[in-house]
Simulated scan of single mutants.
Amino acid sequence: MEKRHNYVRKTAELATQFYINPATSQPNVSGLILAGSADFKTELSQSDMFDPRLQAKILNEKRLIGKYFEEISQDTGKYVFGVDDTLKGLEMGAVEILIVWENLDINRYVLKNASTGEIVIKHLNKDQDSDQSNFRDSTTSAELEVQEKTSLLEWFANEYKQFGCTLEFVTNKSQEGSQFCRGFGGIGGILRYQLDMRSFDELSDDGENYEDIE
């Protein structure tokens, strides 16, 4: 219990150090997400040691996912889920809030067709990683050579700003978070405007110049 107490105290001290601007005595972030092991998050958020100026900035995961589910239940068309559609939405600049499970286990591959030199992007989970057919062209069986391999989580963290969206990591510890991970693959987004992904797929099929995302 003493170690837990010290851990929470140290985290609270570092949070103030990192997220309060000493010049203005105000938070330098618009929102904070608490993540981590078991109920440490709750313990920290309710602790007297945690700076009240930062407590006001904690983003409520349930509220975020609740908003996402609301868009779906009202069928507003302002949502995407799954790797494929979320990536397409990002490429179009349509995603306002990108929501990703903090333990999403998907790798982003940049592959080069050994015969044609064509570059292909694939996003593979652990099972697909070990399936060699994913590293061959489906029609010609030409080898697809790995040029880059990155955790999709890491890629999002580095690249999300270029898509003009905010990035929110969620856990699967709450009922809402668990439902998001199980029902929607742990990745999705709230859109700025209504988007019909089916019509976008038809445009891609007609030869529009978009990345081949599997």
Rank of each mutant, 00 (worst) to 15 (best):
R182W: 03
K57Q: 14
S73V: 06
S37D: 12
Q17L: 07
Q55L: 05
T11A: 15
L191R: 08
F40K: 03
Q55M: 08
L14Q: 13
K122H: 05
I97C: 03
I97W: 14
T76Y: 01
E71P: 00
L152E: 03
H123K: 01
S133G: 00
S30W: 11
I187M: 09
A15H: 14
K149D: 06
E70N: 12
L203K: 05
A114T: 05
D127G: 06
I119N: 12
T24M: 08
T116P: 03
E43P: 03
N28P: 08
F135P: 03
K122M: 08
L111C: 11
E2C: 04
F81V: 07
M197C: 07
K126L: 09
M92S: 11
S133A: 08
I190N: 01
D105R: 11
T11Q: 14
D48V: 02
E43H: 01
F50A: 03
K161L: 10
D75N: 14
P22H: 10
K88P: 01
N6T: 02
V100H: 00
F169M: 01
I121Q: 11
E168L: 02
I58W: 15
S204H: 10
D196A: 05
V95A: 08
Q17S: 13
H123V: 02
L153W: 00
D137L: 04
Y7C: 06
N113K: 10
T139W: 01
E70R: 10
G117Q: 08
H5N: 07
E202C: 01
A157K: 09
F50N: 02
V146E: 13
I106A: 04
D85M: 06
Q147L: 12
V170A: 01
K112M: 09
T42Q: 12
S115P: 02
I99L: 12
G89D: 01
S45P: 00
A157S: 10
A114V: 03
E176D: 13
F163A: 01
A35I: 08
R9L: 11
K3C: 07
Q162T: 07
S130P: 02
L152D: 02
I58K: 04
T166D: 05
M1Q: 10
E168C: 05
G31N: 12
S73A: 08
K3R: 13
E159G: 03
H123Y: 15
E2H: 12
L14F: 05
S130R: 11
Y79C: 08
G186L: 07
N6C: 09
E176C: 05
S138T: 12
G188Q: 00
A35Q: 11
L195A: 07
D196L: 07
E202P: 01
G82F: 12
S204E: 14
V80F: 07
N21L: 05
V95Y: 06
S204Y: 15
L124H: 13
S37Y: 13
I213D: 06
E118F: 07
L153P: 04
V8C: 11
E211S: 06
L191F: 15
D206W: 12
E176T: 04
N125M: 09
G185E: 04
D51P: 00
